[in-house]
Nucleic acid binder design. Structure first.
Lengths: 177, 177
DNA sequence: TATTGTTATACTCTATAACTATA
DNA sequence: TATAGTTATAGAGTATAACAATA
């Protein structure tokens, strides 16, 4: 049986992932003020620059946001002159998101800032361990992406786990005191 | 100068942290259906069980949420009989959050489920590397927590970085088409 | 019929500020 | 005066569903 005395929030992987993620977003927010949509706008820009944004829905899924949110995001990036939409010649339902010259220039500055953020977050690591750590994080993220669409994560954990939690309306009860 | 062709969203640390964090939250959501507040309610419960929740404000800060949100969260946990509030005898402004027996039992089940989630997320790693990786993540999170309250993260990165982004009202412009 | 993108709407969640109590 | 907690409110962010275009 578990011993609560030996436990601590500090040893919780989920908690620590949250800490790092929030720290990253916060730092990113500080360096993307000229990019609409904040850190996520930056990620869309990265995808556009890298030619990985040929389909809004797929990109939205990859970034963990709704496709309708992606519409607003790309609207704003387009209005800022950082990207343009173009119908995919092969399937005209799809919109390809392409970076403009200005988008590329903006990306370049933001990209440098984000590498500096990386360095700050990973600062405590011995320099020699950084590439391996980054690689590990990337590998784990890849695997999780490959598995999660099937919701296999929760099968493993519990039969009760109906992973697509449908926003229980009673979750925050109307307070009556 | 950077070469966009060699870049990819997959190599972005922030992106990968987001992927892992979202995957963790999603899996956690699947196993905390009996805990009000979802994954964060669970984290409050962990803190209560571990005796690390002597002050709502401090805990809220640690979990990255607003103190007013913490009030609602603890309200719901208390209503579910998982924790109780008690005024701190040493400073009666503070409320200590203590786990009940029921809270402890609920925590025990949830804790096991979360260790299973950990195992799933970290599955791709060689078993022997897991403890070191967990330790690294914890160390990084500790350091980031020690630095971020001072916003030194962004000083390092850019002079422009006023980290406490005050919710630019023009960020999502009212769409007029 | 299924899917992409869009739009409007409704809802959830969060931040803000005012208030009480303690210090 | 300053801080912890609470509360109500306003606002930002998100999901939902319907629609048009394309497959």
């Amino acid at each position: 049986m578990d011993d609560a005395a030996e436990q601590s929030l500090s040893h919780d992987l989920g908690f620590n992932l949250g800490v790092l993620f929030r720290a990253y977003v916060k730092a990113s927010n500080g360096v993307v003020r000229d990019i609409p949509g904040g850190p996520r706008g930056y990620q869309v820009l990265v995808a556009a620059v890298c030619g990985e944004a040929g389909n809004q829905s797929a990109l939205a899924k990859r970034l963990g946001i709704d496709r309708s949110v992606m519409t607003y995001l790309v609207d704003d990036l387009e209005a800022a002159g950082l990207v343009v939409r173009r119908p995919d010649p092969d399937d005209r339902r799809n919109r390809q998101i392409l970076a403009t010259d200005r988008g590329r220039a903006t990306w370049e500055r933001a990209e440098q800032d984000h590498r500096a953020i990386d360095a700050h977050i990973l600062g405590p690591l011995p320099e020699a361990d950084v590439p391996a750590f980054r690689d590990t994080i990337e590998r784990l993220a890849e695997r999780v992406n490959a598995l999660d669409p099937l919701d296999s994560a929760c099968e493993v954990v519990s039969d009760l786990a109906a992973a697509a939690v449908p926003a229980d309306p009673a979750r925050r009860a109307p307070r009556t005191r």
